[in-house]
Design a binder for these strands. Structure first.
Lengths: 204, 204
DNA sequence: GATATTAAGAAACGATCATTTCCTAATCAA
DNA sequence: TTGATTAGGAAATGATCGTTTCTTAATATC
């Protein structure tokens, strides 16, 4: 992006950017995770990304566009982290345990205090516009669909009770995962192993 | 409060208030629940309470004082609602089921969209000052202590597994309850009965 | 009545909000 | 080298932020 090279290797006309767009979005993610959309002022985003307000408005249409880019980027990061963490798990139950472990990890320490962008967006949902709410609903829907999928995998491999109400269990797990991240903004989770063991009873 | 009558029945000197303080705080609670602390401007609080900014600053030191009063009021309201809802339940398990039902109720419809003040505060915890965070931590701590108490009651009456890890189960339930309210800002919970049944497996 | 005290409410305060404007700098094609 | 085009960045814009000030109104005591 720095040199604005397109598919053919030709440069765009005009002065090239001297910052990396992807890097700027990554830094904007950190700002929005900590403060949410409404409380993240352009000035704070400017300091967080290292770009002046003018440069931000050259690169993005407006504050909503910065947020939309950050939201999409955050989702991609989470998806990758989840895929990596679940890769080694060999049953549906083990994958759900790994997912719980990942969320407890993310809710701990500095990462926990920084918070989850989805959680921040949910909390200020009434202050978001239709597009932002739609993106949020899509993220939540995907999360729930994944939980249902993992539960069905567990039923198929015998690690989850066969007559489990999958939709209901997925709803509970979804609320639990979001609650973990929400509480992590105030304090880290304690007794991770015990927590996971208690939560996995939902699968029995 | 309207007539500023003190313990002896004598009035305070000066012009009396022509609004009810408790009522004003009740209305401020609604504003903060919907928008959180930082996004609730004095102008919005003014419209929400029906008081001018000047009157608000006569009655409260500053915006933080309005929030502190609203937070305390909200906790009292919740405590009363919980006490009422649990009164008829005859076992620890039934009380936890009733608590889940209460939260699912509160997460539904207009009440759900309006949101929970504790959840809103958790989400913007990094933007709150030490006093506000302390009040928040106290609220969460009380919530967790109540869950542990209910679990122990269940163990005593046989409705909760005797060798349950009470602390861990309470942590899971706490995260679950907050997650329910958080998700309620975007969409109401579905299949309440199934949800409660799935969640109660934590007690087994 | 007169005086003291407090509330109500409009207006003003400086700070910060998101956004735009404007000028300079750096690259392209010619 | 010359224009066209875009980025960088400081400064200005009007709106809104939390808070204060000021004038007027309503109550107390004397």
């Amino acid at each position: 992006m720095t040199q604005m090279i397109d598919d053919t290797g030709a440069r765009s006309p005009g002065r090239p950017r001297n910052f990396d767009m992807a890097e700027a979005v990554d830094r904007a993610v950190l700002v929005f995770r900590e403060r949410g959309y409404q409380s993240a002022s352009i000035d704070i985003i400017s300091r967080g990304t290292g770009l002046t307000a003018g440069s931000l408005y050259k690169a993005f249409k407006d504050k909503k566009a910065i947020f939309a880019a950050a939201f999409a980027r955050y989702q991609a990061q989470r998806l990758a982290a989840i895929a990596e963490r679940l890769a080694d798990a060999e049953s549906g139950r083990a994958r759900i345990a790994a997912l719980l472990d990942l969320y407890l990890d993310a809710a701990s320490g500095a990462e926990g205090e920084r918070g989850c962008l989805v959680v921040a967006s949910l909390a200020e949902a009434s202050g978001l516009d239709a597009d932002q709410r739609a993106a949020l609903a899509a993220a939540i829907g995907a999360n729930e669909a994944r939980l249902r999928d993992l539960l069905r995998q567990g039923q198929a491999d015998g690690s989850v009770r066969a007559d489990l109400d999958v939709a209901a269990a997925a709803d509970v797990l979804l609320a639990l995962l979001q609650g973990i991240r929400l509480l992590g903004k105030l304090r880290p989770p304690r007794n991770r192993a015990g927590f996971i063991a208690a939560a996995l009873k939902i699968l029995d």
